[in-house]
Design a protein around this nucleic acid. Structure first.
Length: 716
RNA sequence: GGGAGAUUAGCUCAGUUGGUAGAGCAACUCAUUUACACUGAGAAGGUCAGAGGUUCAAGUCCUCUAUCUCCCACCA
């Protein structure tokens, strides 16, 4: 089979990723092979990855680039190995995150969500999200992702919404969710509660005020909450104070006197402060717990906007900071401040806006974590899930052994509505399937629709199942999936919830291997952030150096779980490599015009056999790296074999034989070169799919399909 | 207060089960039309944080120390 003139024409020019990549991607999409149902007969055993659905509120960032690359490498490798490879793409509505993004947009336009009708706001965010989603998907394609777009799911697809609500109903019936009055993490800016993983502890310098408090002195950083105090707690073993336990004491404050009971509680540390603790159940998680244990009343003195409420007399309406200064000043005037110390402590803040979290008692929906966490911990202890790197198993188990109930209510519109009714007067909640809106509660109140939406992780926690169309049976043969590959920061937020829901809903772990990659930082190893101006969008790099160069550059030198410093020079270096592959192929093809890959193996020289033995060793080693998730080593070995062994040594050695008089020697050299080239193009394909597919099309071979479904090389 | 990770060439990092140190980029010398200057050849550069220990053999295993980073945590 003669090599076509156009192939030679193409090969006289340097490799141009820009014009090639979109054409090749289209070729793949049209082939239908991203969909495992269209794969040839030999692909039987499933291999499945569910793509962590990128937030559909913007473009991809560098971390997504690494996710897409690693997952595509795995998918392409397994597809070539003959697996029925399925990689399901998705898009996440990202409830709170997207709402925050949209609120910023509204702010710029001089608008506010608090002045908008629920439906109007929802529809606007939906339009915005659907538009952003298109860009996000285009970015995923530009990176070469061989995922099955025909199965793409969005977390707000009607079927997904319905199933998420069904899960809630099931959990409610199984007594695994409840509506409770508890202190929740309240963001006064965003006007919603947040789960513990959505708060960030920030080291803060405050003052510790020692306040004369009846017969005690108490130490507090929040003197403005004194109006909500209901008790004093001491350690029951504390010799100084135990005689007071059970007594009622009088406490003076600027707006009058309080009568407070003295309680004994083991939680109080006699060594800290004065060993006596003022108890403000409505505004402190720990104090709230004590109020439950000791049956104490709760007095709310700070409202949802972070202002002092009507029980605080003249301070009502003041912001917390202002009120604190004023209360301290007034306490000092009354001679009630004993001393003030500098104090450094960690304060929980909203992870999006940095506003200090106000613990606030509200009726909210909670998931009972203990029984579910046990399921997950047992599965992991039983070896059902393997972590890469393995130290994350310990972190996972620590978290599963120390869960607190999960607050799933969010007071935002952008999300899936909790399918419940709540009583307007007594605030109890029931499933929306139990009765109809407007019916009467036992207390005489009226049931209205719950307006809260689910925490995003409640829906994305079910993603491996939902992405496969659960509970419909059609694609459940792909469950449990093989690998969940995501950033190490999701070890708490996401991974445990998927394990829990997988076990709870399907009775089986959602994935057998968790592969966690590190964070992608700037070239100095600093975290990328808009404020630092060091953000490098992956699409900028694919445009400049090609997706192949970015992909292999992201993976080589990066071990699982470890952060990565993304230097543009490194990507540039790998563009050179792609060009090297291009040029070496060009050399081989122009010197093998009179033969093909279908030519039977001729008599080889001893040196030729040696070269093939070396190649076989490389194939074995590289394959083993792929199998064992050591992609950084697979990439490095491929790079070096191709450049330093194949191009620098083997090709150079063969040059004289290719132009020499000895026909047998020439044919042997041609055969060896072509076969090494073919083998390398195949093994390089998962890393640099575009250039290898393009070159594959030029190889002289009779029965040839697209490279993405070619079989993985075996040693000769 | 707990936990994890890191410390290897100027910079960014590899180095799977222990066998006389590697890459990319940068810098140095030479080659100048070669499949490829998006190149080739060559040289240079590290007492693998420190101290002990196990071993015939330790960057790799064990103990301790130092420094850095990150995560978790309701001592007010």
């Amino acid at each position: 089979m003669p090599i076509m003139a156009e192939v030679h024409e193409k090969l006289t020019k340097p490799y141009e990723p820009a014009s090639t990549e979109s054409r090749i991607y289209k070729l793949w999409e049209e082939s239908g092979f991203f969909n495992p149902d269209n794969l040839p007969e030999r692909h039987k055993e499933p291999f499945t990855i569910i793509m962590p659905p990128p937030n559909a509120n913007g473009r991809l960032h560098a971390g997504h680039g690494l996710t897409i690359t690693l997952e595509d490498i795995m998918t392409r490798y397994q597809r070539m190995q003959g697996k029925k490879a399925l990689w399901v793409p998705g898009a996440d509505h990202a409830g709170f995150e997207t709402q925050v993004v949209y609120e910023k947009k509204l702010e710029k336009e001089g608008r506010s969500r608090f002045k908008m009708d629920r439906k109007e706001l929802y529809d606007e965010i939906m339009a915005f999200t659907l538009e952003s989603k298109k860009h996000m998907e285009a970015d995923v394609k530009a990176l070469g992702a061989s995922c099955d777009w025909s199965r793409e799911k969005f977390t707000l697809d009607p079927s997904v919404v319905f199933e998420v609500q069904e899960t809630f109903r099931k959990m409610h019936r199984d007594n695994l969710v409840y509506r409770g009055y508890r202190t929740v993490n309240w963001c006064t800016k965003h006007q919603t509660s947040l789960s513990d993983v959505e708060t960030e502890n920030v080291e803060k310098s405050d003052k510790l005020y020692y306040i004369k408090y009846g017969p005690f002195t108490v130490a507090t950083v929040r003197p403005e909450t004194i109006f909500g105090d209901v008790a004093v707690a001491v350690n029951p073993t504390d010799e100084r104070y135990k005689k007071f336990i059970g007594q009622t004491i009088k406490v003076q404050h600027p707006e009058g006197k309080l009568s407070l009971i003295v309680i004994g509680d083991e939680e109080v540390d006699p060594e800290f402060g004065t060993g006596a603790l003022k108890i403000t159940p409505s505004h402190d998680h720990n104090d709230f717990r004590m109020s439950e244990t000791h049956k104490l009343p709760r007095v709310e003195v700070i409202d949802q906007y972070g202002k002092l409420g009507d029980k605080t007399g003249k301070y009502a309406g003041m912001k917390i900071a202002e009120a604190r200064a004023k209360v301290v000043e007034d306490l000092q005037a009354l001679g009630l401040i004993e001393k003030i110390e500098d104090y450094a402590h960690a304060v929980p803040t909203c992870y999006k806006c940095g506003t200090t979290i106000e613990p606030r008692v509200m009726p909210q929906w909670f998931v009972k974590m203990a029984p579910l966490a046990k399921l997950a911990a047992d599965a992991v202890r039983g070896g059902k899930i393997k972590f890469i790197p393995d130290n994350y198993e310990k972190i996972f188990l620590y978290w599963m052994d120390n869960t607190i109930d999960w607050n799933i209510s969010r007071q935002i519109v952008w999300g899936i509505q909790i399918p419940a009714l709540v009583c307007k007067s007594c605030n109890i909640g029931i499933l929306d399937s139990e009765t109809i809106e407007g019916s009467e509660c036992d207390c005489g109140g009226i049931f209205v629709r719950e307006t809260d939406t689910f925490d995003t992780w409640f829906s994305s926690g079910q993603w491996p199942l939902l992405a496969l169309g659960y509970p419909k049976k059609a694609d459940l043969g792909f469950y449990p999936t093989d690998v969940m590959e995501t950033g190490r920061d999701l070890i708490f937020k996401w991974i445990p919830r998927m394990v829990i829901f997988g076990l709870y809903l399907a009775g089986e772990v959602p994935f057998r291997t968790v592969y966690l990659h590190g964070m992608v930082n700037d070239k100095h190893g600093k975290k990328m952030s808009k404020s630092k101006g060091n953000v490098v969008p992956p699409i900028e790099l694919t445009g400049k150096y090609g997706a192949d160069a970015l992909r292999i550059g992201l993976v080589i030198g990066n071990t699982p779980g470890n952060d990565l410093a993304l230097a543009e020079d490194k990507i540039k270096g790998y563009k050179h490599f792609c060009n090297k592959v291009w040029n070496a192929t060009r050399f081989v093809l122009t010197n093998t015009i009179d033969t093909t890959l279908d030519t039977p193996r001729p008599a080889l020289t001893k040196r030729d056999e040696e070269i093939l033995t070396e190649l076989a060793a490389a194939v074995k080693s590289i394959t083993s790296h792929y199998e064992n998730f050591r992609f950084h080593l697979a990439g490095e070995e491929l790079y070096h074999y191709f450049w330093n062994t194949f191009a620098d040594i083997i090709i150079e050695e063969m040059k004289s034989r290719l132009t020499g008089e000895n026909l047998a020697s020439r044919q042997a050299a041609q055969w060896v070169l072509l076969h090494i080239l073919e083998t390398n193009i195949k093994m390089l394909h998962p890393f640099i799919p575009f250039v290898t597919e393009e070159l594959w099309g030029m190889l002289p071979k009779n029965s040839k399909s697209l490279l993405i479904i070619e079989s993985w090389p075996k040693p000769f």
